[in-house]
Design a protein around this nucleic acid. Sequence first.
DNA 1: CGTGTGTTTGAGATTTCTCAATTTTAGTGG
DNA 2: CCACTAAAATTGAGAAATCTCAAACACACG
Lengths: 247, 247
Amino acid sequence: MLHTLPLHRFNESIVLPAADIERIQTMGEPPMRLARHAVLRREGESPRYIYLLLDGWVASSVLLPGGDRQITKFHLPGDLLGTPSMCLERTADTLTALTAASVSRVPLAAFGDLFQRSPHFAAAMLLSIQRERVALMDRLAAVGRTPALARVAALLLDLAERLGALGGGEVSEFELPVTQEQIGDHLGLTAVHVNRIFRQLVETGLVARHRQRVTLLDRARLKSVSGRQERVPVQDVSWLVGARAEA
Amino acid sequence: MLHTLPLHRFNESIVLPAADIERIQTMGEPPMRLARHAVLRREGESPRYIYLLLDGWVASSVLLPGGDRQITKFHLPGDLLGTPSMCLERTADTLTALTAASVSRVPLAAFGDLFQRSPHFAAAMLLSIQRERVALMDRLAAVGRTPALARVAALLLDLAERLGALGGGEVSEFELPVTQEQIGDHLGLTAVHVNRIFRQLVETGLVARHRQRVTLLDRARLKSVSGRQERVPVQDVSWLVGARAEA
DNA sequence: CGTGTGTTTGAGATTTCTCAATTTTAGTGG
DNA sequence: CCACTAAAATTGAGAAATCTCAAACACACG
C-alpha cells in the first residue's frame, strides 16, 4: 500500500534519493478515512500535525471575524496539508474534506526530524513552499485585479493542470466535487455570481458541464480570458543541492 | 557597518547561533544604493539572486497580461526580497524601490550553501517563508471578502506592527512613502477609491494624516473595522531544531 | 416519496470603478 | 529663491460589476 503514496509533489524540481522516499513513506501515520464535510483540523488549534493527502479533495480555509470564509486552497492528492500553520502558535487554517478522503497524519516532530536529517528533503520543501507562495500571489492578483470570468477560467485551468500532473496525462475533463458557494469562497465571489459566470462560460462555448463534470472545450480561449501567467518550475537546482551539499 | 544589518526577521522564532549570524552577514555582496523608482529586478528574468533589504521600502509586484499590477508585498528593512521566484525558471515578481533604498545582493548559490550547511538557518527560513504564506492568505481573505475600508485599516495596522518590530517599540505614527495608486495595487482597489477611504478614516477620527505621515488615532476601532486575525509566532520549535538536530 | 442541499433565475441595491476636471505637492532648472 | 512642470491627491458624476434577497427548481438520499 505504501508504495502507492502520491509523492509527485516532492519530486517536482529535485529528485529525492530512494532513502528519502523511504523516510517520507514512514513519516506519516497509517491512513485515516474522512467522510465528506469532515473537519480534519480546525483553525485556532495548536499545530501538532501536518497531513499528507492520499486521496480525495480537501479545502483549506480561513475565517474572517464577520463570519465570511476564504478558501485558500483546493488540495488534491499528494498535497501536504496544513503546513503554513507550523509557524504559528495557533493554527490559521481549517482543513475540511470536500469529498470522502484519505489522509496520513504526520507529527510535526517526524517532519522536523526528516527536514533536519535530509538536505534533499529540506530543499524540496523549500521549493515546494515557495511554489505555494507563488500560487497565492497569482490568485491574489486574480482576485484583486481581474473580473469574475477570468477568475473562474483560471481556476478551471489550474485544476486541469494539477489533475494532469497527478494522473500523468493531459486532462480536459474532470469532476469538480465542489459547490458553487465553495468556488465563490475560493475566488472572492458570491455563489450566485459564480453560477452566472458558469452559464456565461457554457453559452460562449468555452466549457461544457453535466452534473459536476466539467469539460474544457476551448483551452486556448480559456487561457486568454483567464489572464494567467505560465509558471515554469526551476530546472537547475544545483545551487541548492549541489555537490557541496552532498558532503 | 555589517554589524548593523537588520537581521530581526531571521530570529523570530529561532535564535540563530552566532556562527550563523556571521555567515548570514557574509552571504550578501556589499550594499548597493537604489534611487526611488529604481527597478532592482524585473519579472521574467532568470532568478540568480535574492536581496536583503537594508534600508528603505521596496515593493514586490506581479503583472497581469491586461497591464494591471498587483503589489504582493511592501517590504521593509530586514526583509529578504525575491525569494518566491527561486522555485521558477523565470522570476515572477518585479522589485521596485519605493524610496531611496539600500540592498545587499545575495547569489542564490550563497543562499543555498548556507541553507545546506546550517540546520538552524534552514529551519528559520522554513518558518519565515511560511509566515509570508500566512500573510498572503490573510490578505487574500481581505481582498476577496472584506470591503475597502477594512482593507486599508488592515494595511495601516500591519505596517505599524512591522515598523514596530523593526524599531523595537510601539509605532502609532509613521511615514507612508507610497502613493495611493500603489496602495490600490496592493489592496485590489482604485487610487480614487483609496483616496475616498482615507477621507472616511480621517472623518471618523480613526486616523490623521499630514502629507505622507499617518497617525493611528484609535487602534482599537481600527482593529475591529479591519477584521484582522492576530497571528502569534510559534514559541516552541523544538520539533524543528531539537537536540537531535544539533548533532 | 419527502427533505435538504445545491442550483438557477429575477429584480433591485451597493460598492467600486471610470472618466474628467481641479487642486495640491514635489521636483527641477535657472 | 522663484517659476515651471510633472506627479499625486482630490472631488464630482455617472457607469459597471457584483451583491443581496427571494423564489423556484432539481436532484440526491434516506
